[in-house]
Design a protein around this nucleic acid. Structure first.
Length: 117
DNA sequence: GGTGTGACCAGCT
DNA sequence: AAGCTGGCCACAC
């Protein structure tokens, strides 16, 4: 028999990167939304882990457009600088207030809703 | 090769 | 209402 479903050619990481790269300019999404889009609500942690691994990737992943459910820049400290993530988001027109995205509901980009499948 | 951990989320107590 | 625990998958030791 074939390997279980978890042994797909492209692991969870690859799918995460694909979705993150699809985030339009000036928008942001959450780890849970991506995980939900991939079919596993509980895999939100993997999304964060994928972001951590994205740094040593040859491709540039706009990880700064991915925040937690509260719209807070939870991973800002994992960027080049503690304020780099905020700077990148602000350069895209996103307003940050207290390490949290303002009007997050408004700029929230849900892959399930935008891409669908 | 087992165990622990990790940029999370939602449910339960 | 707020704090804790479980769950998910991949990677490092």
């Amino acid at each position: 028999m074939e390997k279980p479903a978890s042994r797909r050619n492209f692991s969870f990481f690859e799918n995460v990167y694909e979705v993150v790269k699809l985030i339009p300019h000036g928008r942001a999404t959450s780890y849970g939304a991506i995980a939900n889009y991939l079919g596993s609500r509980g895999s939100a942690r993997m999304v964060g882990w994928a972001m951590n691994a994205s740094h040593h990737l040859p491709e540039a992943i706009p990880a700064h457009r991915v925040v937690n459910r509260n719209g807070m820049l939870s991973g800002k400290h994992h960027f080049g600088g503690p304020d780099l993530m905020q700077q990148l988001l602000e350069s895209e027109g996103i307003v940050i207030e207290g390490d949290q995205i303002k009007n997050f509901r408004d700029i929230f980009w849900d892959p399930v809703k935008e891409i669908g499948f």
